[in-house]
Structure formats: structure tokens, C-alpha cells
Design a protein around this nucleic acid. Structure first.
Lengths: 194, 194
DNA sequence: GTTTGTCTACCTATAGGTAGGTAGAGCCTC
DNA sequence: GAGGCTCTACCTACCTATAGGTAGACAAAC
């Protein structure tokens, strides 16, 4: 078996991300995790002494993933509008079958997360907003986007729509994230008049 | 004591809404509820046979509340932009001190809610989107707002920002919901150019 | 004297976590 | 190269706390 795949720690993290997207941090148990990976619950504690440690590793994992994909998307889509839609599509791709965006789920559970996770999540969100803000600045400078005020303030709007959209799709599967972000990009387009 | 206030069922519902906003449906227990109201956990089952019954009553409560406030806001704010900001303020008012919007919390927990609650929540969200859509239509007809496509699609954007904003304020208290909705209204304003 | 609303006492399931043991891989020494 | 040492990665068995829920007693109100 491929050692990269059979690595239990990585399997646990992957299963944890999946469960997080489905039921949230508070609602998945070591038992759920153990069943997926095929070990006993006690063995999980060997890799992650406490659930908080697992949660923290989870956020680290998400951060690494986000960073890795950023440059990739920038290179593939020079057009900012297309890039935003591609971001939405990338998230939508992983949110099929009743899954939501892990960052959104964690944020909804913010109050019940261990303090260390709260802080890590805060940083992760800041990084995401900074990233999208830079994209928006680029789009406005190129005349592709129209919005008032700072790019970081507008980035919150964009991120709101992406995050809530990933949530809305669970109760309302007919409302796709792509359509929602398309609507937003059109609203921010200087060309199209009402 | 005022019978309206001493009514245990209403006290339980009020406490449940508060706990829902703080920690979510899955993370509050009958014990938490009992401590707040000052009765034993077993007594709660007299008013709500199961937690799902309580959850369902909770959503009914939220729906009644929303409906009651709708006409009120429409009358107080003939200007649609001002009305949207007032809606944001009304939500922000109840989301102080680490509280988030109850509808948003419920939606984030969608997958772990009992089926009856899922359906009730679905309906509640539809009503909210319909309501905001009507406001937006009104604003566009009056030339106050500029946006492409259907009002219901745009209502999803507006609601996304309000809901995610109430969540973001927990981890990022400096980012107020009012400022976020102001940013959105400005983005949708036909007068202001980039 | 039945209904209402609460109580005590208990139940079962499940949560995260701990203690201590063990099979096997790799290594070091004689 | 055989025997012993250590580390890794798991195991069984158990712990305590807590979850939602139930049965039945009981006092006050109507």
C-alpha cells in the first residue's frame, strides 16, 4: 500500500475534514473517525492527544491547502472575474452531497471551539480576506470591477456570499454557488447597467 | 409576577433562543436550559416532549417574530436602503456579546437537525428571501438600487451578507454588520460610480 | 377529583480521555 | 548473527461526565 495513503495521521485528518463539512466539529466523534479510518478510538489519541489538537491540525491543514491553491488560481485565471467564479467552483466542487465549506462550519461553531482553535481560525479568515482583497484591488485597477471603499471591506462581501452560498446549497440545492457568485460579479460589473 | 413572564414555556423558548445564538442547537443541553429557567431537566419534557419538539417550536417562534417585525420596518422606513440598514441594525442589536443570528446558526447545523426542523427551516429561509426580494424590487423600481437579474437572486446576496456578517462579528468584533451592509448598499447604488 | 406542572430517581447511550499491554521494525552490541 | 533495547502504532479495558429521556410520586389549582 502506498505509504502516503496508508499514513494514519493523514487519513484521520482527511476523514475529519469530511466529517467537519458534513456535521461540524462539535457533532463528530472519535468513534465516527475511528470507523472511517478502521482503527480504535483510543488509537486516535496517539496521533492527536486531544480533540482540540486534532482541531488545530485541521485548521493548519486548511491553511496549507488554501495557500497552495492560491498561486495556482492566480496563474490559471488572469481575469479577476473568472478567477472569482473559479474560486466559487472549486469550493462548490468539494461541497457536494450535503457538505458545506469547512471554514464556514468552524465559524458558526466559533463560540464552542477551544481558544487555540478560535485564534487559528481568526488568522485563517484574515488571510482569506487579505487574499480576496488583493484580487479585487487588481480587478478594480483593471477596470473590470466597480465597488466603493476599501478592497478589504469589499472582500468581506465577496467572502460572505461564497460562504453563505455553500451553506444555502444544503437546504436549497437548486440555488447553486456558481449562480450566486455570478450574480455578485455582475452586480460589481461597471459595464452592465440596471 | 407577570403571568406572561412567568410562563415557563415562554421562558424556555426565550432561553433556548439565547443559547442557540451562543452555542448552537447541538451544543446546548436541557441542563443548560433548566439552569437558566430554574427548573429541573425532567420538567422541560412536560412542555416539549423531545428536543426536536423544542427545536420546532423555536423555529415557529422565529417565524412569528420575523413576520411581526416585517410590516413594522416597512412602515418606519419608506426608503429601501435605509430599511436594509435598519434590518442589519435590528439583527446586530440582538447579536451582541458573542451571539450570532439564530437562523444562520441553524443553517450551519442543517445536517444534524431532525428532518422536521430541516423542513421548517427551509420554509423560514424561503420566506425571508421572498421578503427581502420584494424590498429590492421596490428599491429598483424607485431607482434607488441597481442590480442585474431577478430580485430573488439578489436577495440571496443581501441575505448572505447579513447572515455571514453576524457570524464574522464574533471572531472579528471590529467588523460591524452595519458597515458591511453599508458597503453592500453602496455597491448596489446607481449614483455612486467607482 | 381531575388537571397542571413540577419533582426525585433512574435509565441507556455516548462523549472524550486514560492505563497499561503488545506485536513488530530497526538498531546496536557482543 | 543472536539476543536484547527502544520506538512506533496500535490494542483491550476501563473511567467519568454528560446527553436525552422515562416512570411515578406529589402538591396546588380549578
Amino acid at each position: 500500500m502506498n505509504p502516503a495513503i496508508s499514513n494514519t495521521r493523514e487519513q484521520l485528518l482527511a476523514a475529519a475534514v469530511d466529517l467537519l463539512q458534513r456535521v461540524g466539529y462539535a457533532s463528530f466523534s472519535f468513534r465516527d473517525l475511528a470507523e472511517v479510518v478502521g482503527i480504535r478510538t483510543a488509537s486516535i489519541h496517539y496521533h492527536f492527544p486531544s480533540k482540540a489538537d486534532l482541531g488545530l491540525a485541521l485548521i493548519d491543514f486548511l491553511r496549507d491547502y488554501t495557500r497552495a491553491r492560491e498561486r495556482e488560481m492566480r496563474d490559471q485565471h488572469p481575469d479577476v472575474c473568472a478567477r472569482l467564479l473559479a474560486l466559487a467552483d472549486r469550493i462548490a466542487e468539494k461541497c457536494v452531497d450535503q457538505r458545506s465549506c469547512p471554514m464556514n462550519i468552524l465559524q458558526a461553531e466559533y463560540a464552542v471551539l477551544p481558544p487555540a482553535m478560535q485564534q487559528a481560525l481568526h488568522t485563517l479568515i484574515d488571510e482569506k480576506l487579505q487574499l480576496i482583497g488583493a484580487w479585487l484591488d487588481e480587478g478594480r485597477a483593471a477596470g473590470q470591477l466597480r465597488f466603493p471603499g476599501s478592497a478589504i471591506a469589499q472582500a468581506q462581501l465577496v467572502w460572505s456570499v461564497i460562504e453563505y452560498g455553500s451553506q444555502l446549497a444544503r437546504s436549497h440545492p437548486d440555488r447553486t454557488l456558481h449562480a450566486l457568485v455570478r450574480q455578485l460579479v455582475d452586480t460589481m460589473s461597471p459595464a452592465k447597467s440596471p
